[in-house]
Design a binder for these strands. Structure first.
Lengths: 202, 202
DNA sequence: GGGCTACCATGACGAGTGTCATGAAGGAGG
DNA sequence: CCTCCTTCATGACACTCGTCATGGTAGCCC
């Protein structure tokens, strides 16, 4: 529950990047948001802003990865389409509950710093990779042949991220609903029933 | 060929936003890139940076919309899947030719300024709308029922934008190829053959 | 107690930002 | 010629930014 000041700073950085992007997120803003002392910055993050944002990105990637597992575990009679719907629903819920101010920090970091900071760019690359891999594994557990699980995971991530951008631009969750509906039959059609690891015995 | 200084400024702004995002793109950078005099800024864009970026976003949206029509016209035996593949191929070609520094300016603007500037946010909203509509119309010409054309257009845009982000993060065009392959059967499966407006007579 | 380390506080520096005030060319029309 | 208007030039203002230097406090270990 209570986090160390260092964790609070990383978390606040991720939050602010989601809203403002990395360029507009100042270090003074971050410590103010985290209610942490400004002097902690040079102590915990001697690598400066790049290190801080990189850690925030890594944290966000890990969070997204963990969320895949948690959401998948809650599904009853799980299918890839339902998993995608559940992932999109989390964004849908957040948008309707708290507005469209915050997007995905990974997208924001790519847009702002992919060409500027190599370290940040491949922090995001690793974060996406660490998100895609457990997603692909989950798909395999749902019966997707391993030859296609990685491809479908990339498709799901791409479509979800793009729909988030469209939803924010339009201030409307409709794009999220639309892509879920359109993608569902394709995703569910990819399961190989013979290989499915059912929760009940054969 | 030769453009007015004003156009050059708007175009340069769009270019720089693609690379650096809107926050990190300074007005001095823009005029330097456009080889335009700094004094022109306050003359042509009395609304300041917001106006300039908004015009750059609008131009980018119009450019994307025109490109849909141009790409569609070049397809032989056109299908929705081929159209999507051609749209993705343009990004693929640019990435392989000139690197992964530049992304989509609409995504960059949403990530940077959606929560900050309302005027910019709905400039992007209008740009996406002006991109999606002609895309949906093109899909209808390819035989997609009008009830689904808008949904499929949203799906295509979302997936393309997301794949662009993933490609930049990984410095690899693979995500673009992956989503094209995975989405093709779904897209081509949506054409209603009876309604297709064939280029040849029945 | 002395010393060491972790943590925090604060002020300054140089560079960058968007914006504005002021003024100067340069051609069109009276 | 003189005026008007568009276009451009330049310097200044009031910031904010990331970073660093310096110093202070608190606690633990020998």
């Amino acid at each position: 529950m209570t986090r160390t000041p260092r964790e609070r700073i990383v978390l606040s950085a991720a939050q602010l990047v989601r809203i403002q992007g990395v360029g507009a997120t100042g270090m003074r803003d971050v410590v103010a948001h985290a209610e942490a002392p400004r002097g902690s910055l040079q102590h915990y993050f001697p690598g400066g802003k790049d290190q801080l944002i990189a850690e925030a990105v890594a944290w966000a990637g890990g969070y997204a990865a963990r969320r895949v597992a948690r959401v998948a575990a809650k599904l009853e009679d799980p299918t890839p389409g339902k998993l995608f719907a559940a992932m999109a629903a989390q964004w849908r819920d957040e948008f309707t509950a708290t507005g469209f101010d915050a997007g995905c920090p990974l997208v924001a970091t790519v847009a702002d710093a992919a060409a500027t900071s190599e370290s940040l760019r491949d922090a995001v690359g690793k974060a996406f990779e660490g998100w895609q891999r457990p997603l692909a594994e989950t798909l395999e557990q749902f019966g997707v042949p391993s030859a296609r699980s990685a491809s479908l995971a990339v498709l799901m991530l791409s479509t979800l991220e793009g729909a988030i951008v469209l939803a924010r631009a339009h201030q409307d969750v409709a794009p999220l609903d639309t892509v879920v509906e359109e993608l569902r039959p394709l995703l569910d059609g990819a399961v190989d029933r013979r290989r499915r690891r059912a929760s009940t015995v054969d």
